Amino acid sequence: MMTTSRLLALPLLLCAPLLATAAPAAGLTPEQTFDLYARVLLEDDAGAARTLNDALRPAFDGKDAVTPAHGELAGAMAAPLQSLLAKQAGGARDSAAVPALMAANLRQTRCRATHAQVRDNAYVDDAKIASVSFTCQVTVLDALRPLFSAGLRDDSAENLKRFTDAYLLALRDAPRRELSGRLDLHPAKDNDYWYSGNLDALVSPVVDAVLPFNAWRQDALADAAPKVTGVPACDLLLLQHRQCIANTAPDQLPGVEAMADELKAKAATSTPAAMTQECKALRSMAEAMWDDDCR
């Protein structure tokens, strides 16, 4: 069945130019700035790109500050499903239509700022940070989980087609739910305008909502992992880490067992939510020790 790689390397070309020294610009609020970013990046809104460039152009010697790549995000998000469709008989026609369908879905996401809180930057004298809270409307895909699980158990042509047909239909017609997030914006010189140095906080939640398949796959694997802590994320981490270290560095297995004992003891006194967060953090460190075959 399909797994989805992280799309954090998407071309966030809206960020880098904004680190330049600014001259006075049209005064966009943090909320307005966020909305324009979202409309340009997620919705391919050419009007929003013009508005943002008009506001920032004095800071860039009369040049455009953002150069959006039309359809690039939708194309990157569509690629995993296109690969799956390409394996199916007669899937070429459906495959070609996926980027446009994904783009139409993203245009309805409507990520918008709800409010912003400006605070002092603890690391830069006399500088501020605007924490912008936002909501997005993302497609509800929960009904697809049984079809996805069936494909994991048996990746037959029938199961794959059943899942891809349902997913394509959901992209077009499924109801939506509200997703909340927060993005930090930083001011340029003299607080003339706001910019984001990293738009992952906007892009990643949307990608994860529209392409939840890697998370679903991890959930399925966690359900089958030996119950050491009783917390699925921790138990799956321990299983995968133990298997990888056994193959690549068996002399380090005592360290894995020590980590298992420590997590088991913590789980006895901590909440599942806190343990899940801790094991997510531990995963990034463990994965640094894994080779490609372990991932």
Rank of each mutant, 00 (worst) to 15 (best):
S5C: 04
L10G: 05
P11L: 10
A16I: 07
G27N: 15
P30S: 09
E43C: 03
D44C: 06
A46F: 03
G47L: 14
A49N: 06
T51I: 05
N53P: 03
D61Q: 12
K63G: 01
A65W: 00
A74V: 02
G75S: 03
M77D: 08
A79F: 10
A79S: 10
A86I: 01
G90I: 00
S95P: 07
A97P: 03
A97D: 13
L106V: 04
L106I: 09
Q108P: 04
T109V: 15
C111G: 06
A113M: 10
T114R: 15
V124Q: 13
D126Q: 14
F134C: 09
C136Q: 11
C136N: 09
Q137A: 15
L144P: 06
P146S: 00
L147C: 00
E158V: 12
K161N: 05
K161F: 01
R162T: 06
R162F: 00
R162D: 00
F163G: 02
F163H: 01
L169Y: 10
E178C: 06
S180C: 03
L185S: 02
H186L: 15
Y195T: 05
G197E: 11
D200Q: 14
L202Q: 08
V206D: 08
D219F: 05
A220C: 07
A224G: 06
G230N: 11
P232I: 09
P232N: 08
A233P: 00
A233L: 05
L238M: 04
L238T: 02
Q240R: 15
Q240I: 04
H241F: 13
C244A: 15
I245M: 15
A249N: 13
L253M: 03
V256P: 02
E257D: 15
M259Q: 14
D261S: 14
D261W: 02
T269C: 00
S270A: 15
Q277H: 07
E278Y: 12
R283M: 10
E287K: 14
W290M: 07
W290I: 04
D292A: 12
D293H: 10
C294P: 01
